[in-house]
Design a protein around this nucleic acid. Structure first.
Length: 465
RNA sequence: GGUACUCUGGCAGAACGGUUAUGCGUGGGCCUGCAAAGCCUAUACAAGGGGGUUCGACUCCCUCGGGUACCUCCA
């Protein structure tokens, strides 16, 4: 598989001959997660699902940054402890992302549970004379890492002249960043240099190397993390291990809202809770995968609506597949499905082009629906199409809502009565039954020889769009 | 101001130095008791502006312009 690497600005081949090790920078847990977080995490979720589907083992680590100024400030504001804030938002994180059908990572290490590793990490940097202690904390000396700026393509002297850097006289160089911050404000931990807490970037370096070892396969996150977060991680980590930190740097583009930046000051932040509530996980996932991961995507109701229409087609396809009962068989279904399946895989192999993979998925949907429309979808074709359809659903993380056996029987009974009434030309009565099924979100599809039903996913936004 | 990314038809979005992308939308049709769903079919002077390289550029180069992100809060 080829992936765009931010560091070398070129496509790199992912080595899948062994277990693939991925580290994804997760969230700082001080507030609700939003659609931007969702996109990044869904992209990595699908990457992981795809690799696993190919039989490749994946060690997928995603951290929680649970100690940070923002958490402390929030705690102060709400008059609770930092731990209460982070625990609360970790809980919300899981409810949001379970709702989005994101598979749980192999592990979710937390900064506060790895203080020892962080301290060891810092000590080694001090020993190597790459970090130093000053009045306010322990700092990484950027001048000791000549390659600083290589990820973000920034020049050190240009950064130094940047007007927005606040001059801190206690640092040797304005670019030096904190590994450890001295503080008396709880929570704090003891360290050989003084009581305090870790700086922002150090936890990812310490935890990724601890869980994945040196030179792991993919390090990812949102584009906005390239600088300073990932730049600093590289500086720390490569000073620490004297080896390449990560093989491929994979960055996911931002989500804009109607062309504007999503920000609290603009009041246009779309929380996962909100989008999930209105659109459901399938539509959100389709939306998040509708563009190439490295490019920005724009959130708009119009685009979500487009994905809703597509999702309805996929639902129809599913119910056509499970209700097929005729013996007909079309000649070239096997070769068509094989080609579509290939297209799907090739799209993902080639820089993880989820948009192209989606078009392959929808051409499979179309193929099945076309056969069904012509009354030609036989059970032998279903044997070919359904496993592939389900494989794609699994990789994309899409799911058809389940329906109980009792409900199925009830529906079948209602359809039977309606059939009887239709045969007797009591259409008004028959239509009443159809209407009451519609109210249960059951859609009837009248084929020539039989009537089948589908359970439409209940999507709030469907009504107001 | 600097750096990176980006600019394709009403919208979304690919590939490719020379061939219809595709999807949504829109028009028409099929199916139906009527619908719905689905299917079929038609539909686009498309390439941000201007130069250049080339037999030929959406694709390569230059330039101008727009957008987004980052420049120690950020997925």
């Amino acid at each position: 598989m080829k992936l765009q690497d931010t560091l070398t600005n070129s496509e790199k081949t992912l080595d899948t001959s062994h277990k693939v090790r991925i580290y994804l920078c997760g969230v700082t847990v001080y507030d609700e997660s939003h659609i931007g977080h969702a996109r990044t995490i869904i992209v990595f979720d699908v990457l992981r699902r795809y690799l696993e589907n190919r039989g490749i083992e994946v060690n997928f680590i995603q951290n929680f940054t649970d100690i940070d100024d923002k958490i402390i400030n929030r705690a102060k504001l709400e008059n609770v402890t930092a731990d209460e804030i982070s625990s609360k938002y970790i809980e919300h994180y899981f409810s949001d992302f379970d709702g989005l059908n994101v598979k749980r990572a192999t592990d979710y290490p937390k900064a506060t549970e790895h203080i020892k590793d962080i301290l060891d990490f810092i000590q080694k940097l001090i020993n190597k004379d790459i970090a130093y202690t000053s009045k306010n904390g322990v700092y990484f000396s950027v001048s000791k890492f000549p390659e600083y700026g290589k990820l973000s393509k920034k020049k050190i002297d240009e950064l130094q002249s940047g007007a927005r850097i606040e001059i801190d006289e206690t640092k040797k160089d304005p670019l030096d960043f904190a590994l450890w911050k001295f503080s008396d404000v709880e929570p704090t931990w003891d360290s050989p240099w003084g009581k305090g807490r870790p700086g922002w970037h150090i936890e990812c370096s310490a935890m990724s190397i601890k869980y994945l070892g040196e030179n792991f396969d993919i390090h990812g996150g949102g584009r906005d993390l390239i600088f300073p977060h990932h730049e600093n991680e590289i500086a720390q980590s490569e000073s620490f291990v004297d080896n390449q930190f990560a093989k491929i740097w994979m960055h996911v583009g931002m989500v804009t809202i109607n062309g504007e930046k999503m920000s609290k000051s603009l009041g246009n932040v779309k929380s996962i809770k909100y989008v999930l509530d209105n659109w459901g996980s399938n539509i959100i996932r389709l939306f998040c995968l509708s563009g190439h991961y490295s490019k920005p995507i724009d959130y708009s109701e119009e685009l979500l609506k487009e994905n809703l229409i597509k999702w309805r087609q996929a639902e129809t396809c599913y119910y056509e597949l499970i209700h097929s009962n005729n013996e007909k068989q079309s000649d070239n279904v096997i070769s068509i499905v094989k080609k579509i399946s290939n297209d799907f895989d090739e799209a993902l192999e080639g820089d993880f082009n989820t948009h192209l993979a989606l078009s392959a998925f929808f051409s499979l949907v179309k193929e099945a629906n076309r056969l069904a429309a012509d009354e030609n979808l036989g059970i032998n074709d279903v044997k070919t199409i359904k496993p592939e359809f389900e494989r794609m659903l699994e990789i994309l993380g899409l799911s058809i809502p389940k329906i109980s056996q009792e409900q199925k029987q009830e529906i079948d009974k209602m359809i039977e009565s309606r059939e009887r009434l239709r045969n007797e030309k009591h259409f008004a009565e028959a239509d009443k039954i159809r209407a009451s099924l519609n109210e249960m979100n059951i859609e009837l599809i009248d084929h020539k020889e039989k009537t089948i039903w589908m359970k439409k996913e209940n999507i709030k936004a469907d009504i107001w769009t």
